[in-house]
Structure formats: C-alpha cells, structure tokens
C-alpha cells in the first residue's frame, strides 16, 4: 500500500469556532495507481493532501504514507519522507520567483542526502521533458502560468518519488493549458512508475485516471455513491 487513510477525522479552528473538515475518512492507494480526488472547493481536498504529506496532523485516525505513519512519526522522519519519496504539485505553483526554471526544479534536491549539484543533469532533463528547454535562465516570475506549473511538475518528479500528490494542478490555468498540464503530469508519473493522487474539481481529469474518489461534506465516496 502506498497511501492509506484509516478513519481520519480533522477539524480546523479553536474552541467554539472549531469546524470539522473531514469525517471518518478512509481510503487507500496501491502502487502505480493514478487516482483523482474530486469535489467542490472548500470540501477538504487540500487538507487530505497536507495530511498525506504530514504537514497536518489528524484529530483521529491513522495515515500511512509509504509505510510511515505520518500522523505520529517524528518531524525528521516525515521531512525525510517528503524530501526523498514524495513529490508535491501545488495549485499556486509556489516557485521561487526570481530563480530560474532549472533552479526551481532543483530545489527539492537541497533537502536530500546528496549534494544538490549532483541532480542538475536530471533537473535539466525533467525541465526539457516539461517543454521548457528554451527557458533555461529565465526567472520563474517571467514564465506564463502554464509554464510555471510545468516547472512545478518537473520539480515534484526530481527525486523520482514513489508518490506524487497534486493539489488542484490546473486550478489557475485556462482550458488548453490545463489539459496539457494534466496530460504531462499523468504521463510523467506513469513514466517514472509512480503513484499519483490528484485533488481537483476539474471533471476533465476523470477520463485520464484509474480511479476517482469523491470528497463531499468531509466524507469520501466514489462517483457512484457520492453520499457515502
């Protein structure tokens, strides 16, 4: 099992303003699966991604990511897991604006166990595969939004992660760019033999994935049983 949520509950806010975002969520992803987590905005898709990466801790339940119980493991172990075995694509790209596309792709290498410089060749290859070969020294801020998301995808794949988590990767893109980015992401994850969980409200991705999970009112279901 690559990722499993078991009876996970998560709330935000404090005291009387506390609001439950996830209710007893359970699901799992097997190796090589490409899974879409769909649902309306504000239903907790980003929370699921953050819980899976260990950036958030659930109120209850167990989250197992790549064999590490991220909900209770020490910060060092979870950080190492994120650095070496998980790739993350954010909706807002989160690139370093003044650095080049190559430097941005290379960024996760700094958190690994080897000198970041050793990964420059792979970073360049991924950048080219993302269709950015002519944008070597251009600062990220000067790229179009579609190009920025391509850089973010290349960055997520740099360390050859076993699990890629994409949070609304097409959220800020127009239709044409969104489809291209989705195809790039799925193709590249398949090429790297990875597992992908895409949190999205974009219905176009349903035809491209192996499995779809629906998140509605903080509960997980399938497209056939949306009120599960």
């Amino acid at each position: 099992m690559i990722l499993s949520f078991s009876h996970v509950t998560f709330s935000v806010g404090h005291a009387s303003r506390r609001r439950r975002v996830l209710h007893d969520v359970s699901f799992s992803l097997s190796r090589g699966e490409i899974v879409a987590l769909v649902g309306p905005s504000g239903e907790g898709k980003t929370t699921v991604i953050n819980l899976a990466t260990g950036l958030l801790t659930p109120d209850e339940g167990i989250i197992d990511t790549l064999g590490v119980e991220v909900s209770s493991a020490p910060d060092m172990n979870v950080s190492r897991l994120r650095a070496q075995r998980i790739g993350v694509v954010f909706q807002s790209f989160h690139l370093l604006p003044r650095e080049s596309a190559l430097e941005n792709v290379l960024l996760p290498a700094y958190f690994g166990a080897r000198p970041a410089y050793d990964m420059r060749e792979r970073a360049a290859t991924l950048r080219e595969r993302a269709g950015l070969e002519g944008w070597r020294d251009v600062a990220a801020i000067e790229l179009s939004e579609g190009q920025r998301q391509r850089v973010a995808i290349a960055r997520a794949l740099l360390q050859g992660p076993e699990l890629v988590l994409a949070d609304e990767p097409t959220g800020n893109l127009d239709d044409v760019a969104a489809l291209k980015v989705l195809r790039l992401l799925i193709d590249e994850v398949r090429r790297e033999n990875g597992t992908l969980l895409i949190a999205t409200h974009d219905q176009r991705c349903l035809g491209l994935v192996d499995k779809t999970l629906v998140l509605r009112q903080g509960r997980i279901g399938t497209p056939d049983t949306p009120e599960a």
Partner: peptide, 16 residues
Amino acid sequence: AQRIGLYRALGASRKD
C-alpha cells in the same frame, strides 16, 4: 515565511 514554508513542504525539517 513563504520560502520557509516551501522548504518545509518540499522536505526540510525544522532542524534543517
């Protein structure tokens, strides 16, 4: 703070 947040999200531990 955002840069630090990104470092953390990409794998930097608190100690790092």
